[in-house]
Design a binder for these strands. Structure first.
Lengths: 204, 204
DNA sequence: AGATATATGTACTTATCGGTAAATAACCCT
DNA sequence: AGGGTTATTTACCGATAAGTACATATATCT
């Protein structure tokens, strides 16, 4: 993939670790949003200066998009792994409790950067807003497809509208991101998760 | 209330209508968020120039807070009126369908400015973020109190945890704001509202 | 009509924004 | 050791941010 820039060890070596720098950038974008984050915020948090940032990551927008990629592939991310669970109910269960655990985790900013990174934003940020909307909509679509599978598997009632069910679940998850921003703790989010699951359709 | 500045008609009269200017400001903040909105955006939308804005509204932050006040007192707002409904179920019903109708209304920006006005933001916007969090938490508290009343009225089961129920409902409403930003239409939001109501506890 | 009071328009301030030019430093390869 | 290559540092760029000074315009009050 990254065959464009040196796989060979030629030239002065980079003095910082790109992955940890990207983690720092993610943390700032997560907490302040795209518009609310300045390059000074980024360089300070990443421990590098601007030319190094531009050389390594392109520009602010590309850095943001790479940070989002990192966010979704982190070990503690819960959305995609939940899709692998054997039944629709367990998929929902893992998503909801995973969100309750993760979104209020005080080891990083609260909520979800895909939700709050560029919800309302300037025209300069319009493209990253679009990118985040796409991520959210694609997640919803993946969940619908998983529920379609569940219907043929027989662990969702035949009459289930999987599109609505997926949208409903994403709505709750996205609402939990706001709740986490409000200061709700994991236990409070778990209660919301529990209540959501009580209404979840199961195989007849 | 507004006795500080001239109730008397002395001096050059204001050449614009403060209420319509405030509506325009609200629309910009709603669409772009606090950080994403510049004073140029505001003066252009409001049809006035900066000294007039500062003389009439104080500064950017005070203008934002006044715009939020306007937002919550608009005729088409649905949250506080829903609290007046006779039963807990009808309260929830009116909130959910009101949100479905309002948040995807194409006559104004999608979603809810109290949710998306300053969700993640710069340090300069920290105080308005706090103000919005307070609004959201206070709304949740008001709904809990309403549900407590419903319990004594007998239109909620005695064992109901009204705090969790209120938080769950606010979670769905806030999630619907994100869905509206995703491009969901009123009908799609109505489906989410319907599914939420199906799980709503009723009097035994 | 003239004094007083408030609003408007133009032009400005200082600070910061995202982004970059150019010189220097640190590595590998021959 | 020296050439080639890439990273870091410092200093800068034009544009725009929020906010304001000041002169002018338009009203009421006496």
């Amino acid at each position: 993939m990254s065959a464009v820039t040196s796989t060979v060890n030629v030239g002065r070596p980079r003095a910082f670790d790109m992955d940890t720098a990207l983690e720092k950038a993610l943390e700032v974008f997560w907490r302040k949003g795209y518009d609310g984050t300045s390059l000074s915020d980024l360089t300070e948090a990443m421990g590098i200066n601007k030319p190094s940032l531009y050389a390594a990551f392109g520009n602010k927008e590309q850095l943001f998009l790479k940070a989002i990629e990192l966010y979704e592939s982190r070990p503690c991310s819960f959305f995609l792994p939940a899709l692998e669970k054997p039944t629709a109910y367990q998929v929902a269960e893992h998503m909801l409790y995973g969100a309750a655990m993760n979104m209020a985790d005080s080891n990083h900013p609260q909520g979800c950067v895909v939700v709050q990174g560029a919800l309302s934003c300037s025209e300069a940020a319009a493209s990253v807003k679009e990118a985040l909307i796409n991520r959210r909509v694609e997640g919803e679509q993946k969940l619908k497809v998983r529920f379609d599978q569940a219907k043929t598997d027989g662990d969702l009632p035949p009459g289930t509208d999987t599109g609505v069910l997926a949208r409903y679940l994403l709505t709750v998850l996205q609402g939990m991101a706001i709740q986490a921003n409000n200061g709700a703790c994991s236990e409070q989010l778990r209660q919301v998760a529990h209540m959501t699951l009580q209404a979840f359709p199961r195989a007849g």
